[in-house]
Design a protein around this nucleic acid. Structure first.
Length: 493
RNA sequence: GGCGCCGUACCCAAGUGGUAAGGGAGCAGUCUGCAAAACUGCGAUGCAGCGGUUCGAACCCGCUCGGCGCCUCCA
């Protein structure tokens, strides 16, 4: 039974879906005016994993993630670059899909854009005005916070407290400093739509209410986003939606913690952010490996806490992952026969699976779930030392694959994590290159394999000096060699 | 000022009242021409600090300290 920390109640609660075996969830995506950084990646990944785990647990998940494609920052960016707003948003929506795709983040069931829901937004705004929860001033529409008595229940704030901390430059036309715009009249040159209040565009918060209600209904199961969205964004969504419908909006509110650099929140204003594509560009590893490293890193901490990003952290993730892929490679190789203990394997797999489920059920403790997989890795390595049947080796690999898919890990093929075997000299005529690798990688791997073959020859002549030179040369290029007992050599990055 | 998150070994990180998992790094050993991998062993008498509750606390309560965040756009 899955338990989730619900920001609304401040407690961890057993998750029960409204409809049996079905989950409807909404996650706030990004405002598309720039490339995404790792903070965005973390949020996207956390909810990607939540979705995967719900599906693993047998739910059918309707997962909606929006794009905010009308906003001050977009307008500013478009003006700076002298292009239309929709050129900016189209570019960064595509970039979003590219970047998140590299991280193995699955597309949502629906990915609506604010501009596609102007009608819904206007309708919802009218509904709020009719109910007396919103008022019109000079073509702007504001939500009147004091008319929603429960305002502050998500962020645990009281209007009085907020008022005390409110800044000086409050718009005097507002009834209360915390009143927020549902509809903004537009200046010339800005994107604008016809509305009962004149030409204008939606405020930020209203779009999520309109889109979630449209795609998921007035009450749905899970609403997620980064912790910085709790106030005011999600607070305002609740006020609008519940105000308009008179029903509960989302039942479980899930928020992820920040990615930090040197203990500080990663943010544009501090300039301490790394974009996802920047990391891929700078990575010394190929794209699919870098993606898995990032995923492993981002999941190595519980989603609710802060996570410090650093080169060292990435290296540690890579090292930890190496151990898994080394094992997968061993599992794929022939040999290792002997007095196999296939029953012990089944026991180990079952133990790992139980532990994995138990920790994931406990508010998605991915760090502990990974620990369960590490335990299985250790168990399988030991069993392999004794010997396992071909069937058991396949079953072991399959166990890692099937649990790993929940985290989006361990799906790469036996060759793809840069573990390759150069055959014995007699077999050198055989081409063993994997078909999936890129041309660039093939060329580099060809060179490596040439060196390795030279070294095997040197070893045959018992010219260990030459053999060690080649090893050192490759080591300086980040290539590690492993001589296997059967005379073949395995290399990896 | 209000609200919230976090604080466990060199690093990451479990544990949520019964006497500190796991991984990475490091060191030592087995193996190896040498390495690598794997395996074995070592590694916090202590869980930010101080009090309290308890037979017993990293876990519960109180206070304090430290880091971060939100209250303005922010994943």
């Amino acid at each position: 039974m899955l338990k989730l920390f619900n920001t609304l109640t401040g407690r961890q609660e057993a998750f029960e879906s409204i409809e049996p075996r079905k989950v409807r969830m909404y996650v706030c995506g990004v405002t598309v005016y720039d490339y995404c950084h790792i903070g965005h990646a973390r949020s996207a990944l956390v909810f990607d994993v939540l979705r995967r785990y719900l599906e693993y647990s047998g739910y059918t998940v309707t997962f909606v993630k929006n794009f905010t494609d009308v906003d001050d920052k977009i307008i500013k960016r478009a003006n700076e670059q002298g292009v239309a707003c929709d050129a900016v948003t189209a570019k960064f929506i595509q970039a979003y899909h590219e970047d998140m795709g590299k991280l193995g983040i699955q597309a949502a069931t629906a990915e609506p854009k604010a501009t596609e829901h102007i009608g819904d937004i206007i309708q919802l705004t009218e509904r709020l005005i009719k109910k007396g929860l919103a008022y019109v001033v000079d073509g702007d529409v504001y939500f009147e916070v004091s008319k929603y008595p429960e305002y502050g229940r998500l962020s645990k704030r009281r209007l009085d407290d907020l008022q005390a901390g409110a800044r000086v430059d409050v718009d005097q036309r507002k009834h209360h400093p915390m009143d927020f715009a549902l509809w903004k009249s537009s200046k010339p040159g800005e994107p604008a739509w016809e509305s009962p209040w004149g030409l204008g565009r939606p405020g930020w918060h209203i779009e999520c209410s309109a889109m979630s209600i449209r795609h998921l209904g007035e009450t749905f199961d899970i609403h997620g986003g980064g912790m910085d969205l709790i106030f005011p964004h999600h607070e305002n969504e609740i006020a609008q939606s519940c105000g308009a419908t008179g029903k509960e909006f989302a039942r479980y509110w899930v928020h992820n913690g920040f990615v930090q650099i040197n203990k500080e929140k990663m943010s544009k204003s501090l300039g301490n952010f790394f974009t996802i594509r920047e990391i891929f560009e700078k990575s010394e590893w190929p794209e699919d490996i870098t993606g898995e490293i990032l995923r492993y890193f981002l999941l190595s901490t519980h989603y609710h806490g802060p996570l410090d990003f650093s080169d060292q952290a990435l290296t540690e993730a890579k090292n930890a992952l190496n151990g898994f892929y080394d094992l997968f490679h061993r599992l794929s190789e022939a040999g290792g026969l002997g007095e196999g203990d296939d029953g012990s394997l089944r026991t180990a797999v079952e133990r790992a699976r139980k532990s994995f489920i138990q920790t994931m059920d406990d508010n998605l403790k991915t760090s502990a779930a990974i620990a369960a997989l590490q335990g299985l890795r250790s168990d399988v390595n030991k069993l392999l030392g004794v010997g396992l049947s071909t069937e058991s080796r396949q079953a072991a690999r399959q166990a890692f694959r099937s649990l790993g898919v929940v985290l989006g890990l361990f799906q790469l093929g036996r060759w793809d994590f840069n573990v390759c075997v150069v055959p014995k000299p007699a077999q050198l005529v055989l081409n063993t290159f994997p078909p999936a690798v890129t041309i660039a990688r093939q060329i580099r791997e060809t060179e490596i394999d040439g060196k390795v073959a030279q070294r095997i020859e040197a070893k045959k002549r018992r010219d260990f000096k030459r053999a060690d030179e080649i090893r050192a040369e490759l080591k300086s290029l980040g290539i590690t060699l492993e001589d296997k007992p059967d005379g073949t050599t395995r290399w990896k990055r």
